[in-house]
Amino acid sequence: MKEHDSHLTHYIFLVLGLIVLGGLFVLFRYNPTLQILIGGVGTVFYIIWGILHHALEDRVTGLVVVEYVVFGTLAFLLMVLFVTV
């Protein structure tokens, strides 16, 4: 139960962070440079969240870290591709 609660807290933190960054992303819709910056901050936030979340659950491994880094980078590049064309 305690583990479930902490899991939920982590996810609420992630969703709130993404909502705030998403709002900023839309707010600066006519400024691609700022959008890329916000996307970069969002990616770093996501990677750190993933690593910390797994570390707090004592399940962090090298492969997990690589997965979050690669997934975050992929999402960031997709965003850059969309914003810059």
Binding site: Y11, L14, V15, L18, L21, G22, F25, V26, F28, R29, Y30, P32, Q35, G39, G42, Y46, W49, G50, H53, H54, R59, T61, L63, V64, E67, Y68, F71, G72, A75, L78, M79, F82, V83
Partner: peptide, 25 residues
């Protein structure tokens, strides 16, 4: 599985997708 959380990845993809959709210029 000992791997990243699919739900978290999904949330992050939705964030990217919705952000791109709303901010599409």
């Amino acid at each position: 599985k000992v791997s990243g959380h699919a739900v978290a990845h999904l949330l992050f993809l939705i964030f990217i997708f919705v952000g791109m959709w709303l901010a599409f210029s």
